[in-house]
Computed example of a mutant assay.
Amino acid sequence: MSDSRSKAVRKRALGVFQLFAGLVLLAGAAQAGSDWPRVVYSEDGTPISYEVHGSGEPTLVFVHGWSCDLRYWRAQVRHFSRNHKVVTVDLAGHGHSGLQRESYSMSAFGEDVRAVIEAVGSDDVVLIGHSMGGPVVAETAQLLPDRVRGLIGVDTFQNLEEEVTQEGMDEWLAPFKSDFRERASQFVASMFVPETDESLRDWVIADMSAAPPDVAMSAMEHLLKDTMTGEARQVFDGLEIPVVTINADLWPTNVEANRRHMHSFDAVLMQGTDHFLHMARPEAFNTQLAEVIAQLTNSDSPRND
């Protein structure tokens, strides 16, 4: 076969493949009833992947925890996109977002979420953050005070007055630096209770322990340093919006300590579940979350002016 004929055959084959792939994507989008992932650039130029589902205000922005990604909110996307615009975000270094950042701080993550909210164009937002996502959404709220109605933490903000020393931080991080995958697996396993579905537990352990070690270690170091320096408390200075957490009873939540540093704080405790309560017990969690959202929507929030 001549070179010109061979090129023509390859071109036709490529055209057929592209047409087929396009039809598959369209069919998938129609079946899912949602938008495909989008990309926006954070302040430092890192591409941030996010998804938008449904419609209705306030917009609910879900932010995952350490070494997780937007897939961890599947059960909430299906439930809440019936009545709300639901936005899920892959923070930098997670999921399908960029990996070029050198330092994965909570403030930089907050910029990621701000970029997504501005790209979506929502002016009435409830920020929902799981675990590390709690401090991240607090950073975002400082950046967009006129758009954020309230913060909802998911098993986070257990105690803003917790003390961390440099020695304690170094001791905690050492096993991760020695063998990240092994130590991360042990760490994540400790976040579950025996009643949690075994397949869910195994998937989360395998997924989180496969995170890029450089990203995970940087984020963990910043979390601990923010606690040690007081930044974890100071981020709430001047933030006059309600904060509510839906926490498991796996670890104690010090409500009074948090109230000394927040304009308004309340906690809902779910009994007998674990750190991933939104995945382990999605129906019960979604019921609690819907109640908290309703409280924020009907409160005397500045967003109701």
Score class of each variant (00 low, 15 high):
residue 300 D to C: 02
residue 179 D to K: 03
residue 229 T to A: 00
residue 138 A to I: 02
residue 173 L to H: 10
residue 143 L to A: 06
residue 21 A to F: 04
residue 231 E to R: 08
residue 222 H to P: 02
residue 209 S to N: 01
residue 47 P to F: 14
residue 119 A to P: 03
residue 243 V to G: 03
residue 54 G to H: 13
residue 134 G to E: 04
residue 154 V to R: 05
residue 96 H to S: 10
residue 39 V to T: 02
residue 170 D to R: 14
residue 238 G to I: 06
residue 122 S to L: 14
residue 262 M to K: 03
residue 211 A to R: 00
residue 38 R to C: 07
residue 283 E to V: 15
residue 304 N to W: 01
residue 13 A to V: 15
residue 254 N to H: 11
residue 224 L to R: 04
residue 73 W to T: 08
residue 281 R to W: 09
residue 305 D to K: 00
residue 263 H to N: 08
residue 41 Y to P: 00
residue 140 T to K: 10
residue 215 V to L: 02
residue 99 L to C: 06
residue 260 R to T: 11
residue 22 G to S: 11
residue 164 V to R: 10
residue 142 Q to R: 15
residue 117 I to Q: 06
residue 108 A to E: 04
residue 14 L to T: 08
residue 10 R to P: 00
residue 250 L to I: 15
residue 266 D to T: 04
residue 269 L to P: 00
residue 278 H to Y: 11
residue 231 E to C: 00
residue 203 W to L: 02
residue 60 L to Y: 09
residue 7 K to C: 06
residue 6 S to W: 07
residue 172 W to Y: 13
residue 93 G to N: 05
residue 93 G to L: 01
residue 161 E to N: 09
residue 21 A to C: 08
residue 58 P to Y: 14
residue 301 S to A: 14
residue 82 R to K: 14
residue 107 S to G: 09
residue 148 V to R: 08
residue 232 A to S: 09
residue 33 G to R: 12
residue 106 M to T: 02
residue 129 G to P: 05
residue 197 D to M: 08
residue 111 E to F: 10
residue 283 E to L: 06
residue 225 K to Q: 04
residue 141 A to V: 11
residue 71 R to K: 04
residue 183 R to W: 05
residue 259 R to S: 05
residue 8 A to C: 04
residue 246 I to F: 07
residue 74 R to Y: 09
residue 211 A to Y: 01
residue 223 L to N: 09
residue 271 Q to W: 08
residue 96 H to Y: 15
residue 38 R to Q: 12
residue 193 V to H: 02
residue 240 E to F: 04
residue 85 K to S: 12
residue 270 M to A: 02
residue 9 V to F: 13
residue 86 V to K: 02
residue 246 I to K: 01
residue 27 A to K: 12
residue 134 G to W: 05
residue 154 V to W: 03
residue 287 T to R: 13
residue 259 R to A: 03
residue 249 D to K: 03
residue 251 W to V: 14
residue 38 R to T: 05
residue 279 M to S: 03
residue 234 Q to E: 07
residue 263 H to F: 14
residue 264 S to G: 10
residue 211 A to T: 00
residue 84 H to R: 10
residue 301 S to F: 01
residue 6 S to F: 15
residue 247 N to M: 10
residue 288 Q to K: 12
residue 72 Y to H: 07
residue 78 R to S: 10
residue 67 S to L: 07
residue 276 F to W: 11
residue 288 Q to L: 07
residue 77 V to H: 01
residue 10 R to L: 15
residue 252 P to T: 12
residue 297 T to E: 15
residue 170 D to M: 08
residue 193 V to I: 14
residue 21 A to R: 01
residue 259 R to H: 05
residue 6 S to Y: 12
residue 237 D to A: 14
residue 228 M to H: 03
residue 186 Q to T: 10
residue 112 D to N: 12
residue 135 P to I: 13
residue 131 S to F: 03
residue 260 R to W: 07
residue 137 V to M: 06
residue 300 D to F: 04
residue 297 T to L: 10
residue 132 M to R: 07
residue 183 R to K: 13
residue 175 P to I: 14
residue 37 P to M: 04
residue 140 T to N: 09
residue 38 R to G: 07
residue 204 V to N: 01
residue 278 H to G: 03
residue 126 V to G: 03
residue 151 L to R: 11
residue 150 G to T: 15
residue 261 H to G: 11
residue 198 E to S: 09
residue 36 W to T: 08
residue 23 L to Y: 02
residue 23 L to Q: 06
residue 234 Q to G: 01
residue 244 V to H: 15
residue 73 W to C: 08
residue 174 A to L: 05
residue 152 I to M: 08
